[in-house]
Simulated scan of single mutants.
Amino acid sequence: MRRVVFDSNAIDQIAESVGAFEALKTAVTAGDLEVLYTHVTMDELTAIPDQERRSWLVLLMADLGRLVPTGSAAVDFSRVNFCRVGSDADEDLMDALRSGNIKHTRDALIASTARYEKCALVTNERRLTGRSREWGIDVLSTRELLSEFGVTLS
């Protein structure tokens, strides 16, 4: 079974590609795929200003996956009931994933969740991909994930 944690930017291509959602939903139902997401993912999706797009992406994410606590905690970013308090080693991981920039804390929380859950991170962000791989996190783009389940994006 393939297990993945979604970054919020990874759901867009699924929403926009004919047959993508259906293929992933079929894989989830068959037990071939487990999709996880964090409160950070949902916080980012619910901040989308376009109400129709926001609703569509939130519903897709919620239907495909299940909510899990973040792999680490960050003051002013984490929701207490939806995060794990980590060790000093987790602080090193968070600092590295943030690339020294507090603006990347949400991405670091999602990547740390993939590491904690021992599954792949699905993201389309290059900086996060590189930093995550440096810490041994398997990373897939949305295109790569869909390809694994028979969907080719044009």
Rank of each mutant, 00 (worst) to 15 (best):
P69K: 06
G71C: 08
F6P: 09
R98S: 10
D95G: 11
L24I: 08
A120V: 09
F6I: 06
F6D: 02
I102Q: 15
V35I: 15
D63V: 02
I137T: 11
R127E: 15
L24W: 07
R115K: 13
D92R: 14
I110K: 03
R53F: 00
L121C: 05
H39T: 10
R2Q: 09
G86L: 04
L24C: 11
R53V: 07
M42R: 04
V18R: 13
A23W: 11
G130W: 04
V139F: 05
E134S: 14
K103P: 05
T38P: 11
D95W: 12
S132L: 12
G150H: 12
M94A: 06
G100E: 03
A10E: 06
P49R: 11
R115S: 14
V4F: 01
L24N: 11
V68F: 01
V122D: 01
F6L: 15
V5E: 00
F21P: 14
L121D: 02
G86Y: 09
L59V: 14
D107A: 03
A30T: 13
T70E: 11
F149A: 08
P49I: 01
L146R: 11
R2H: 06
A74N: 10
R98Y: 07
C83T: 09
G150T: 13
E52R: 09
V122Y: 02
L145W: 05
I11T: 04
L24F: 03
V28S: 07
R133N: 08
D107Q: 00
R53W: 03
M61Q: 04
F77E: 07
R79N: 12
L153Y: 04
N9C: 08
N101H: 10
R54M: 00
A114W: 06
E117V: 02
Y37L: 04
G19F: 09
R143P: 02
T38H: 06
L36G: 03
C119A: 11
E22C: 03
R127M: 12
Y37G: 01
L59H: 15
V5D: 06
V4S: 05
V58Q: 04
E34C: 01
A15V: 08
L97A: 07
S78Q: 00
S8V: 01
E44M: 00
A108F: 00
T70N: 11
Q51I: 12
I137G: 08
W135H: 15
R98F: 06
H104P: 01
T142R: 01
